[in-house]
Design a protein around this nucleic acid. Structure first.
Lengths: 231, 231
DNA sequence: TCATATTGTGTAATGTATACACAAATATAG
DNA sequence: CTATATTTGTGTATACATTACACAATATGA
């Protein structure tokens, strides 16, 4: 243990990184930047950067995402802190990793500051990543897959109003296995967190679908009563 | 985003803290230290300290625990990273918090370095804590309660060989609600991760109990096959 | 208007969780 | 030594939840 005054020799830098997931038309993607500078110049990485002295970790993540990619994050949660001694060739850098969810269709991604390029990569076609970012991304995927079964975070990836089939397709994709449509619908509706709207939408052929909307207020009420979301 | 060379102005210190739980005779306790120096001199806190430049976060936790309390940790997992700007009056300190489980009867706790005192506190009689440590402890309790229902970490708090009633009492305590003995036993045994030994133990009056032992190897095999532990 | 595509819906069978009571083996008190 | 108290060990019936499964309704496009 050291008191702070004789800890001036601590040379550890603190950064934040965010694995940002987006979903569109049955495909999950992660947002990556191409590094403009060394180390790993030209290689892909998850967006992130160093924390400023007077900003919280969450603020840092949001600022970096804004700066590097133009993304406006919809849902953000801390994932894990990676502190292996040799994870950054520049020196000791500990990074607090986050998972973010966004609706890709609500904005345009634009590379800036230290990102040469920003791009969505579908999870089955990821490029080689810098640092230990593959490990971080793997953990983020695992977290997302686990979490959608016990927290209603899937809605953060869909439009505010969505047909039930979108939700079903999202879960099929995320869980990587088929879902029985009838049972899934029954279960989700029995959770009482979806409002069925008086609007229909038809995409191409087939019977038009009713639109639904996640009722977050109702969810928090139920959560307070100890009623849990589980799929 | 900043590159490392112009980040020499980052003044953030990184520490680790550990909420260490122990269990004995139906009671869960947390290990706390009494601070020897300011800030919060004389007040209780969870053990921890600053990370050295060339050690991993886990190494730092184990070192600090050893230095301050003499504890040999049995199970350690990262909990959350706390980075609020004003959480430490000395300046910006971000801390990576861990949860540790130990068997209190396997060693003697001893205060040293910056701990004036080390003591086990049962969870219903916790003292006022320094910094944001109450928040950390609350989160640690929540994590422990949640985790014992889907990972076999309860065994880390018991003796290697234990009667079934110990396990049952542990779960009753942790979950804070009564458990049906027969159903609990059925469920745990059906998970196939306990070896029933040919040893009996009798504590006071009553029929002597058979001893059981957690078979970690078997657990990992089952986990690899995707068979999950759930209570 | 016919074929094709997608949404919307109920029931039976299976599996899982819960509720519940008494005999066996020991210690202790009389 | 016997009776009583204490703790362990065990099975079955019921309620509840999950799963499997098929066809009608409503649209588009040829």
């Amino acid at each position: 243990m050291y008191t702070l005054h004789n800890m001036t020799e601590q040379k550890i830098k603190l950064s934040v990184d965010a694995v940002v997931f987006g979903y569109e038309e049955g495909v999950i993607s992660a947002l990556l930047i191409q590094r403009k500078y060394n180390p790993f110049k030209g290689k892909w990485a998850i967006p992130g950067g160093f924390v400023l002295n007077d900003e919280s970790l969450e603020t840092a993540v949001e600022r970096e995402l804004q700066e590097e990619t133009g993304v406006k994050i919809n849902y953000l949660e801390q994932l894990y802190t990676f502190g292996a001694v040799e994870r950054d060739p520049r020196g000791r850098v500990v990074t607090v990793a986050y998972v973010g969810l966004v609706r890709p269709n609500t904005f345009k991604i634009v590379a800036s500051t230290d990102a040469a390029e920003v791009q969505w990569f579908t999870l089955d076609k990821l490029p080689e990543l810098s640092f230990d970012h593959q490990k971080i991304l793997d953990m983020a995927i695992a977290r997302l897959q686990a979490k959608i079964t016990y927290e209603p975070i899937g809605f953060e990836l869909l439009d505010k109003k969505f047909p039930f089939s979108d939700l079903e397709k999202l879960y099929t994709t995320l869980l990587g296995r088929p879902i029985d449509r009838r049972n899934f619908r029954k279960k989700i509706l029995s959770l009482n967190v979806l409002d069925e709207l008086d609007e229909k939408v038809s995409k191409g052929s087939g019977r038009p679908a009713n639109l639904f909307q996640f009722n977050q207020k109702r969810y928090f009420e139920l959560k307070k009563e100890g009623i849990i979301f589980e799929i």
